[in-house]
Design a protein around this nucleic acid. Structure first.
Lengths: 347, 347
DNA sequence: ACTCACCGTGGATACGTTTTCATGCATCTC
DNA sequence: GAGATGCATGAAAACGTATCCACGGTGAGT
């Protein structure tokens, strides 16, 4: 079973391979030969080999996508957004799941490098340093939904360069890599102010690994009410989320409201509250990050901060595909507080 | 920014490219040169180009994965399973989302063909015919979670060949393509018998697009109680799921139990029931296909038929990777009825 | 009418790798 | 000791494509 190559088409059409290549790539050719070549190609069911093309032009088409966990609905939506944009551009997407593990992330980056994939969209797990090899190899990288932990100021004097256009849109403009982010700051602030408005004062934050921006935004929004003891962060696993939620709610019975920094955390919080006999929103008000399908079905329906998951992915894909022209620093997409039934006045 | 090639390594190590290739591919080489080549390669940070290799050996490594919708937790888990297995084999995974659209599916198959991806795992959306070009091109295809609609017996006399080892494990052995499936028949039967045991007689089935096996299993399990009017199927969209659920529950007020053939359908059923003032499980018992995180958080917690999503993906990946040796027909994985609180005795 | 420019075209090359084949050298066997 | 056997090695070919360059022909301009 041999593949039909451009050579076969050329012979069948009675032209040279160069002509076939030109016709198929939109180059110049006479009307007559163009038609003939096209007809022959269609008749032979010829498909140009992406491998051959990639080898020739020194770069694989296609884009890489690295997310922490496809099981998470948010990343599922994000991936759908990327896939939608990539498909409209005819580009394949190589997907990797990092499990929020920097080591695994580095390994996957290596694999993409090996595949000559030169455009990558990633929800970063590790620090910015992990992406050094990638950008050094000429990859176009776009972060989405998250930015790497701040890398401690290294000896490389990049700072002046970065400060040049530092005061732009995004909150953390220290990275040379563009990012598509949800406006966490605004989202968290809205949620906290909403809770404050309901009379809550002891508001806890339950975060996951990374997501430093959200924690910072929470601190900022809380202002003088911030209590470091009420800011806990869990690991990536489900168990660790439960442990953190349980530890928080048991040790500090005085919290009246909780902001969960992700759907897994929110799930843990709901379950833990039930186990402890805390009623929502009677005893505990809850705002969860990410609008997932079950938020509406939960009892009570959960008030959430919704991120535009699909848009995040789509915009990131746009950015990474049209990276040739302008090089936009970053994009900030709005979040939305969807009020349902999980928040009530302070008891 | 030029990539370091095998030639660079060869020159730096003072050997021929063939030797480098052999060393890196585990071929025979003297201890001394092996060490030197390895050292030089490591020092130069050399990574063999997958594109070059793929071109040479006429097949791209990597495996393709086609699922209907990454937003669906089941397919998210399935994808995670595939990714886990592929990563341990060092293979990249090209993912496509078909949206349950046969046309889109065909387009994505074409893209994979163009990429020379020769191993594909797919949750098929269209009929078996759509996969003709793929297998004809020498692709190794494994279906997962679903099998294509039965293709009407075509004129090609494949039948005798297939009947040879037709009486094997899976329910529908008419396809030459191996499949990894959840044991829907057993799952549905268990659910129906459970509902029967609770006294229900008018049990409805709310299905999605495709999934013909589940419907058939439902009919079979219902036996003489089957009522065609109570078997409705929705389209792929969310709206269509609501419409179907709403239509069913409004037109037939006498149904006391409902089996939802997927989490999206289950969601629609719960919401519709709430709108109509039907209490679960008081007025309506509900069993939903697929154990999703929110099933436990729902009010009431939903009794579900759980499929081993991750295992499905992992097994399928194993199958498609080790396809060289034996060619197993199919694999059937067990389902589990997880009893929570959405089913009660007939009112 | 001659030249110049231009367009369509085909041959040749390079991309990075694996694999085949031939060569040289050392060891083994009779 | 001479031929046979084995092994390590490098040169070269091939995979399918895009692109550079040269070539021939046609039209226009002087």
């Amino acid at each position: 079973m041999k593949r039909t190559t451009i050579k076969d088409v050329a012979e069948a059409a009675g032209v040279g391979v160069a002509t076939v290549s030109r016709v198929l790539s939109g180059g110049s050719a006479s009307q007559e030969t163009r038609e003939r070549v096209l007809a022959v190609a269609a008749h032979l069911d010829y498909r140009p080999s992406a491998v051959g093309r990639n080898l020739r032009q020194q770069r694989a088409g296609g884009i890489g996508l690295l997310v922490p966990d496809l099981t998470d609905t948010l990343y599922g939506r994000l991936a759908e957004g990327v896939l939608a944009c990539a498909r409209s551009a005819g580009e394949p997407v190589v997907v990797g799941s990092t499990g929020d593990d920097p080591e695994l992330e580095a390994e996957l980056i290596g694999m993409l490098l090996e595949q000559s994939v030169d455009r990558v969209i990633a929800v970063p797990s590790g620090d910015a340093e992990a992406w050094g090899p990638a950008i050094r190899a000429g990859m176009t990288v776009v972060f989405v939904g998250e930015q790497p932990q701040e890398d401690e100021p290294s000896d490389e004097p990049l700072d002046d360069l970065l400060m040049l256009d530092g005061l732009r849109t995004p909150p953390r403009p220290d990275s040379a890599i563009p990012a598509v982010l949800a406006d966490d700051r605004s989202g968290v602030r809205t949620a906290v102010q909403y809770l404050k408005g309901l009379g809550h004062r002891r508001i806890a934050y339950l975060g996951g690994p990374g997501r430093a921006r959200r924690v910072a935004a929470f601190r900022e929004a809380m202002g003088t009410l911030a209590d470091e003891e009420l800011i806990v962060s869990a690991g990536g696993s489900r168990d660790s989320a439960y442990a953190a939620a349980s530890g928080l709610l048991q040790s500090r019975g005085d919290v009246t409201a909780l902001v969960a920094g992700g759907s897994a955390l929110g799930e843990a919080a709901v379950l833990t509250a039930r186990e402890l006999g805390l009623r929502i929103p009677g005893d505990l008000s809850l705002v969860m990050y990410d609008d997932v399908p079950w938020a509406e079905l939960c009892s009570p329906p959960l008030t959430v901060i919704a991120q535009p998951g699909q848009d995040l992915g789509y915009r990131a894909a746009e950015l990474v595909l049209r990276s040739g022209a302008r090089r936009p620093r970053s994009v900030l997409l709005p979040t939305e507080l969807i009020v349902r039934g999980s928040c009530g006045p302070r008891r």
